[in-house]
Design a protein around this nucleic acid. Structure first.
Lengths: 262, 262
DNA sequence: CAGTGGTCTAGACCACTGC
DNA sequence: CAGTGGTCTAGACCACTGT
């Protein structure tokens, strides 16, 4: 009764069909889900679990590895393994690009985050001319050269989204869209001033595990997928005037859409 | 030169800051992404990599574990480790619940999959009355008891989606909606016949790693996230008449939506 | 400094696959 | 049967954290 950090856990059955490290993972998972370990709380150390279950250290580490893959826990070198807190999510509504949200001066991201009480930042802005990839070219109606606008979005210091906008060069070159600061209302406002009145947006959504580069850029914990969103903006003449390729930390977002029934 | 399966790989630097197992994972990842190993192809066996790199077996296994977590490879006991093929995806368009798609006899899933040349199945159908969870109750305007319709969808024998529809009991009880087969056009057609003309749907989308139960139901490979979609159907009087909770294998889906610009 | 997780070794036995 | 991955042990040394 001296050491109680493992007091909330049971035993394992080495003769079971289920591997020992999976049984340990099951017990920890259940304890977490039942709230026996709360968000941010430290789990028993590897050494404590080795002693509690009478197994080798690799077995315990395999258990942690499972839970880490599920996004339930994260390890901090020299400190311990902790229950992963659920971060606040950012809700994206389907009217987020409605023209009325654009009449003010600031970008949608900043306005919306302020309203939600978070501290928003945009960083790593990069604007340059590029040749298109096959995919982007197709979406933009075979444009060969584009203006690319890259930037990273952060909430309360945490990177949550990395986005690149592609615009046909014949539309964007020499305009304020090619400047680091595209001005009030963002590039959509500028596009409309240039005579491209926006009609609608198509969004394509996928979810997958991040590449190592995305893990780095978004500082993703193990077990956190990304939402990959590709938006194409069309003007009233049916021309695709922008494609925006966005990779979002999935644990930071809820997307919402409204579909008509008719 | 007798054994060439590792011929496409380089060496590791044990003195590097980067852990050896990460270096090995990096090399395998790059070889896969450059197409040096093609989809479905077997990677060198653990024993071959142990010899090639001069490391212990656990080090090689740690490398595979990284790639597995990224969804790039999968292991088959007794056979080998293989490059994961990208499965065909199912595209969900934002007009998929439009009334015109409902006039025929068959369900949207079956019609659409047939058109795409896949073999669709629905399985594990279960219809029962239940008390609601807090969340579902809120979405349905505080309904306490609901009719729940659960089912699993498969394409070419592979489970891709698991869905539960919840309907307020005062609407659904005693109607064809409570029957295993709700008839032509599905439950939305029946709701309209009952006087609940549908106005619009709200969809909420999240992505996350699956629970062990979801891994089992959808037979998910390691490194495959799920898309969690919650749809609420509203009638023309503004009442929420159905909530559908859907968990989809993320590697089998692309969702697409259209947003108005005004 | 002691305690933590990160990496790595060199074995062992098992279960599954295909010939 | 040989070859494959799955599980497990019992160590070792390292790097990071806190006191």
């Amino acid at each position: 009764m001296a050491s109680l950090p493992t007091g909330r856990l049971g035993e394992v059955d080495p003769t079971s069909d289920r591997a020992v490290f999976r049984q340990i993972a099951d017990q920890l998972r259940e304890a977490i889900e039942r709230g026996r370990f709360s968000e941010g709380e430290k789990l028993p150390s590897e050494a404590e679990l080795v002693e509690h279950y009478g197994v080798s250290r690799m077995t315990v580490r395999n258990s942690f590895s499972i839970l880490q893959g599920e996004g339930l826990v994260h390890a901090e070198h020299g400190k311990g393994v902790f229950v992963r807190p659920r971060p606040p999510v950012r809700r994206l509504a389907s009217d987020r690009f409605a023209r009325r949200h654009r009449e003010q001066g600031k970008s949608a991201f900043l306005v919306e985050a302020d309203a939600a009480g978070s501290h928003p930042q945009v960083d790593g802005l990069e604007v340059k001319e590029e040749k298109t990839s096959q995919d982007i070219s197709t979406r933009l109606g075979s444009a060969r050269k584009v203006l690319a606008r890259r930037r990273r979005y952060l909430l309360d210091g945490r990177p949550v989204e990395f986005a690149t906008s592609y615009l046909p060069l014949d539309i964007a070159r020499g305009t304020q869209i090619a400047e680091p600061n595209p001005g009030p209302g963002g590039i959509y406002a500028r596009l409309e001033e240039l005579g491209h009145r926006l009609d609608h947006f198509d969004e394509e959504i996928r979810a997958r595990m991040p590449s190592p580069a995305e893990v780095k850029t978004l500082r993703l914990a193990p077990g956190v997928p990304v939402i990959h969103l590709i938006r194409t903006a069309y003007d009233t003449e049916g021309r695709a005037v922008e494609v925006c390729d966005t990779v979002m930390a999935a644990d930071a977002y809820v997307l919402s859409y409204q579909l008509p029934a008719n």
